[in-house]
Design a protein around this nucleic acid. Structure first.
Lengths: 215, 215
DNA sequence: TCGGTAAGCTGACGGCATGACAGGACAGGT
DNA sequence: ACCTGTCCTGTCATGCCGTCAGCTTACCGA
C-alpha cells in the first residue's frame, strides 16, 4: 500500500529514477510560480531539470498529471491544518485566540503553496473531479471541524437554529481560501497585512459563534 | 474616444469585420465553458466560428488577448452590481433585505459568467495586472460601497473602532466571489443552494454591522 | 458602369511542442 | 569482464502556432 512509484510504462522506479522524477516535480513547481499555468511547457520543465522531454513523459502522462502529483504532496502536508482546530475552545478569550490562529495558519499555508493552489483552484472550478478531491482534502479537515463546532454551539442554544452549520463552515472556509489566494491583491487595494488578519479573524469568529470576540 | 475597433495590423474594422470578431469571441466564450482553459486552442475556436486561424490573429494577438476582451465586456455589464448597494439601508429588517439581495445578485452574476470569471480569477491570482484590473472593476463598486457603509456605522459608534473598513469589506467581497465560483462544489459538499444563500447573507450582515440581522 | 481602394479572408509555411519508440548508457551484482 | 534491468535521449511523425503574401469582396466616387 506504500504506493511504489512507477513509470508510465509500468516499470518500478529505482533510486536514481525517483530522484529525477522529484527534480522534474520541483522544477515544474518553480515554473508554476514564475509563469502562467497556460504557458508552462514540458520542454521548459525538462530543460530546467537538465534532462530531456522524453524523460518527463516517462514519469508523467502530461503536465496536468505532474501537477496533480505536486498537489497530492501538498495536500498531505496540509494535514497540519487540522491542528489549528483540534481540541480548541471557541469561548471567551480562548475563542478569539483560536480564531486568530486559524486565520494565521491558513494564510501562511496558502502563501507557502500559492502557485500550486491556484492551479488546483482552477481545476476544481472547471469541474475536474481529481482537483476537486484534492481541494476537498485540504479544506475538509478545517471544514468538518468548523461544522462540528457550529453544531455544538447550536445544540447549546448559543447559535440560531436556522443556521446551517455546513453552509456556514463552507462559506468561512471559502472566504479564507479566497482571501489567501488574493493576498497580494489586498495590498494593491490598500489593505495592509496586519489589518487584514485581525479583521478576517473577527469575521470567522462572528460566523462561527454569532458573537463579537472577547479580546 | 468611442474606441474604434481595429485589427491587429491597424485597419479599421467595418461591419462585417466586427461581426466576425464578435463571432470569434462568442465561440471562445463557449469553448471556455466546455473545456479547460489550458486546452483552448486558436484552431478550435476558429473552426467552430467557421473561419481560419489566420482570421483569429487578425483581430486578437493571442487567446489571452481575446479573453481580456470578453472579460472587459463582462465587467461593463457588471456595473449592474452597484445597484445592489446604492442607497440601501443596513438597519433593521431593511438591512437583512439588503444583505440578502446583495448575496442573491452576486451569486447570479457569477453563475451567469462563471467560465470567464474563472480565467479572470486565475490571471489575477497569477499577478497579471490587466486581469487584476478587470477583477477590481467588477468588485470595486461593491467593495467601495461596503467600505463606506462600515465607515459610517463606525462613525456612529455602532461598529468597533479597531475594525478596518477596507479589510472587512474586502474580505466579504472575496468571500462572495469565492463561494460564487465554487457553487457547484458546495452541492457536492452536501450544502443546498437554499441553505447557502441565507447563511452567506447572515455572514455578510454580521461582517458589515457586527450584529445579527433582524428578520 | 467602371475602376480604385481598403476591408476581409485564407492557403501555405517555418518553427516549435508533443508524445512515442528503439536503442544506447549506466549501475549493481556475479 | 560480463550480464541484467534501470534510466536516459536522439529521432521522428504529428499537430498547433503565428505570419505573410495574395486573393476576394464591399464600398465609393466619378
Amino acid at each position: 500500500m506504500t504506493g511504489q512509484v512507477r513509470t508510465v510504462d509500468g516499470r518500478v522506479a529505482g533510486r536514481r529514477g525517483q530522484a529525477t522524477r522529484q527534480k522534474l516535480l520541483d522544477c515544474l513547481s518553480e515554473m508554476l510560480s514564475s509563469s502562467p499555468y497556460r504557458d508552462v511547457k514540458v520542454i521548459d520543465v525538462a530543460r530546467r531539470a537538465g534532462t530531456s522531454p522524453a524523460t518527463f513523459y516517462q514519469y508523467f502522462p502530461d503536465v496536468e498529471g505532474a501537477v496533480l502529483e505536486i498537489a497530492e504532496q501538498m495536500a498531505a502536508e496540509g494535514a497540519e491544518l487540522t491542528q489549528l482546530l483540534e481540541g480548541r475552545s471557541w469561548v471567551g478569550k480562548a475563542g478569539w485566540q483560536t480564531s486568530q490562529e486559524l486565520v494565521e495558519g491558513f494564510l501562511d499555508f496558502w502563501r507557502k503553496n500559492d502557485a500550486i493552489l491556484r492551479v488546483v483552484d482552477l481545476g476544481a472550478a472547471e469541474g475536474d473531479k481529481r482537483f476537486y478531491k484534492i481541494r476537498m482534502k485540504i479544506l475538509n479537515s478545517v471544514n468538518n471541524s468548523l461544522t462540528d463546532t457550529v453544531k455544538e454551539l447550536q445544540a447549546k442554544g448559543k447559535v440560531d437554529k436556522d443556521v446551517s452549520p455546513a453552509a456556514m463552515a463552507g462559506s468561512i472556509v471559502a472566504m479564507l481560501a479566497a482571501v489567501a489566494s488574493h493576498q497580494r491583491g489586498f495590498q494593491t487595494w490598500g489593505v495592509k497585512q496586519h489589518e487584514l488578519r485581525p479583521n478576517l479573524a473577527m469575521l470567522v469568529h462572528l460566523g462561527v459563534t454569532g458573537k463579537k470576540p472577547t479580546k
